[in-house]
Simulated assay, not measured.
Amino acid sequence: MNETRATARAGSTGGAVVRVVVADDQELFRGGFSLILGAEPDIEVVGEAADGAEAVRVTEALRPDVVLMDIRMPALDGVEATSRIRATTSAKVLVLTMFDDDEYVHDALKAGASGFLLKDMDRHDLIRAVRVVAAGQSLLAPTVTRRLIDTLAGSGRPVPRLAARLGELTAREIDTLRLLAAGLTNAEIAEVLVVSEHTVKTHVSSVLTKLGLRDRAQAVVFGYESGLVVPGDG
């Protein structure tokens, strides 16, 4: 889909509709994702891109709410495209990965991705993910979270400046961050800490604010890079 066609479609978007750009070098995937998302009343696919460079151009031109980004593409891979999009627009990036893309997940997260999904997800997971990310939340597929944690656990020594920042948190906030970084959901954290999910949400919000983290995904990275969570924990 070229930029001219994409631009022509942009004007029909309503205020409550989530505007999406789909970027994937495989036409079958790109068309399939667009068809699934475009069938939803609250989602409009305003543009498509066949490579990372085009994804950046189309996103800068159309300013969508969410970019569905394949991690492996020609011209510019999904990691670099994500970095450029996050630097120049307010669009959230939802990255699509395969089981063998571990090397890219951490880099995409640090580049500003708000969520990760495996390409073998079902249509309902895709639709939900777009809505969740558009609402400003992060989303990590459970299998991706586990792989990300495995990668971070073996990534090296703690970063001293990050470790020092743990002193900004209360004891309960540190407990929350440790469990969050271990991949637990709010419900699971509430069970471990014997508190309500509402209390957990409050602690998570406070942790993100104090540490200047964008979302839960960044909290996973911080937990390992600060040394709060180490290989063998749990």
Rank of each mutant, 00 (worst) to 15 (best):
V195G: 08
S114H: 12
R172I: 04
V204W: 02
L180A: 06
R165P: 07
I149N: 09
T151G: 00
L208A: 09
L169W: 01
R5S: 11
A49E: 15
R128M: 12
A135S: 15
V130M: 08
V192P: 00
A61G: 01
L139R: 03
P231R: 05
A129V: 12
V221E: 14
G227T: 12
T176A: 14
R214G: 03
Q218F: 07
L148I: 09
A81H: 08
T4R: 04
E60G: 01
D65F: 00
D70G: 05
A16E: 11
V22Y: 11
T199A: 15
A181I: 09
V194I: 01
K119A: 13
A129P: 05
D125Q: 13
V130I: 08
T82P: 03
G31Q: 06
Y104D: 02
R172Q: 11
A164N: 03
A49K: 07
A108R: 03
D120V: 08
R161D: 14
A135E: 13
V200Q: 08
A171H: 08
L37E: 13
A108T: 10
L211Y: 05
D122A: 07
L37S: 10
I85K: 00
A219I: 10
I174P: 00
M1H: 12
V221A: 14
R128F: 15
R147D: 14
R146D: 14
V20G: 02
A135F: 01
G15L: 08
V132M: 08
T202L: 11
A113V: 04
G154V: 09
G38T: 07
A182F: 06
I85P: 02
K201E: 15
E80I: 01
I189D: 04
E197K: 14
S155N: 13
V95D: 05
L228F: 13
V230H: 00
V45M: 02
T185S: 15
I127E: 05
T145M: 11
E54G: 10
I43W: 03
S34L: 08
G38Q: 11
E48Q: 13
G52Q: 00
I36V: 15
E44R: 09
I149H: 06
R9S: 09
A181N: 03
S90Y: 09
E173A: 11
V95E: 07
P158G: 14
L126S: 08
A153Q: 12
A134R: 01
R146S: 14
L62K: 06
A23P: 04
V56D: 02
D51L: 02
I189M: 09
P41C: 07
M1V: 13
V93D: 00
V17C: 03
D65M: 00
T199M: 12
A187I: 07
E173G: 10
R146T: 13
F116G: 11
V230T: 12
S205I: 07
G136R: 04
A111G: 08
A171N: 04
D70L: 04
V200E: 11
R123G: 00
R131S: 09
I85S: 00
G212C: 04
G47T: 12
V204H: 05
G112M: 03
